[in-house]
């Protein structure tokens, strides 16, 4: 990761979190009946609050990881992980959000597939991508994982309109174009995903990568995180 301007990271993150908290505050306000002072909360309101809380949480996780990495404080912990459990964990934690948006998710992954990776980092990537995908999909997200030629490929596909042209292709932390204030949350999110991919580096120098395309199985965008085979951390 080269010369990231942490001021930009903070600006984008604060902007986004401020929006989320603003939404949450408005929603909370609406819970109380101004006449009687009674509180009533329906499921949809709850889901909206959950969604905003998710976003703030994701932003903070992301900001902390970017900061630690820049300060050289983060050492990835590469451990063997049963990939389907990683995907299922993510499915379960984001289910309220998907239910709220009327989105369903299918998981496609060999039950025995095991891969050495940093579970927290990869989960952060999934959170980042899926929170975003839920927003744009028309109702269906496909989460899948395959291993081929010594490489794990994690894919998030949807049936939405796809990514804008300027975001397509291989994403790397070298793409400084992707990270100015106008890039906003999405730009920062992609930068973050690319950083995590690159942190998964093998002793021979090969490292993970992130690619965006618009040939997703269900007809929309496709996000692919590729990770090389790594020795576990001792």
């Amino acid at each position: 990761m080269k010369g990231i301007d942490f001021g930009t990271v903070i600006a984008i993150s604060i902007h986004d979190m401020k929006n989320s908290l603003g939404m949450a505050m408005n929603t909370l306000e609406s819970l109380r009946d101004p006449e009687t002072g009674e509180c009533h909360c329906d499921e949809e309101t709850l889901a909206r609050l959950q969604y905003e809380a998710h976003r703030v949480h994701d932003s903070l996780v992301q900001m902390l990881a970017l900061y630690r990495n820049q300060q050289g404080l983060y050492t990835p912990q590469f451990r063997p992980v049963l990939v389907i459990e990683l995907l299922e964990d993510y499915w379960a934690s984001s289910k309220p959000l998907m239910d709220h948006s009327g989105v369903t998710m299918t998981i496609d992954c060999d039950e025995d597939l095991e891969w050495v990776l940093d579970r927290d980092l990869v989960t952060a990537v999934l959170e980042n991508v899926v929170t975003n995908t839920v927003r744009y999909s028309r109702g269906h997200i496909r989460l899948s994982a395959t291993a081929r030629d010594g490489e794990l490929s994690l894919q998030v596909e949807d049936d939405g309109p796809g990514f804008p042209d300027h975001m397509l292709g291989m994403r790397s932390t070298e793409d400084q174009a992707g990270l100015d204030r106008r890039a906003g949350r999405t730009g920062l999110g992609l930068y973050f995903c690319a950083m995590i991919a690159e942190l998964h580096a093998a002793p021979d120098g090969t490292h993970g990568s992130v690619r965006l395309s618009n040939d997703g199985g269900p007809g929309g965008g496709r996000f692919v995180l590729r990770l090389p085979a790594l020795p576990p951390s001792s």
């Binding site: 299918t106 992954c109 060999d110």
Partner: peptide, 9 residues
Amino acid sequence: MSTAAPSSR
């Protein structure tokens, strides 16, 4: 290859 559709199962 196995497919799990947890939301429906």
